[in-house]
Amino acid sequence: MPDLSPLWLTLRIASLATLIVFVFAVAFAWIIARFTFWGRDLLDAFLTLPLVMPPTVLGYYLIVVWGRNGWLGAWLHVHLGISLMFTWQGAVLAATVVAFPLLFKSARAAFEGVNSEYEKAARILGDNEIQVFFRVTLPLSARGLVAGTMLAFARAMGDFGATLMIAGNIQGKTQTAAMAVFDAVQVGDYVLANTLVAIMSVVCVTILVMTNKLGAKRIQ
């Protein structure tokens, strides 16, 4: 039986990253969809950047910011004695950043797709802005949000470059499934490589099929 522990680590990292992505991506998407302000397009571009940037470049930026001598990393190290470098938490950070744009983009489109008449109607019927969001905007954009979340999860699961830069490839500590595949091929362990590849492929295909189904059945 090949060692499948990298899969469990991947699952843990991807789940946590998706959770963090959900909070921030939905919040930013809502702000950008809802308000017009100076620098909005620039902010949108900045938040979408991880989608097009090479993962290693992204990883490099993460080191610049979060590394032991980085802008935030130095502060964390001095004041809290924490470093994200070469830890599984660092891998969560990398996965969060690479997965962020996928949900952010879907969520923005979903929020902008909600007919503003429904939100106006809710206000007239006595809702404040928080109630409007939870009772009208969120349910009407739920499909887009769920689809985006699933895509973000799939992306978080599969990251290689950014994770390697910040968390390394330490067996049993930061070695995710994607990296275990790389190592297995390097040493010629094709049983392990095939097993991991098969499982990851099935998961990704399942997620994509489910995402497409959600996209097809929209509330009119």
Binding site: E117, Y118, R123, P139, L140
Partner: peptide, 20 residues
């Protein structure tokens, strides 16, 4: 006064019934 405090009834042209 914010919309929610105006106690208005409003019938939208295409009714704006919540589809969900």
């Amino acid at each position: 006064l914010p919309t929610r405090e105006r106690k208005m009834g409003y019938l939208f042209q295409d009714y704006a019934l919540f589809p969900h």
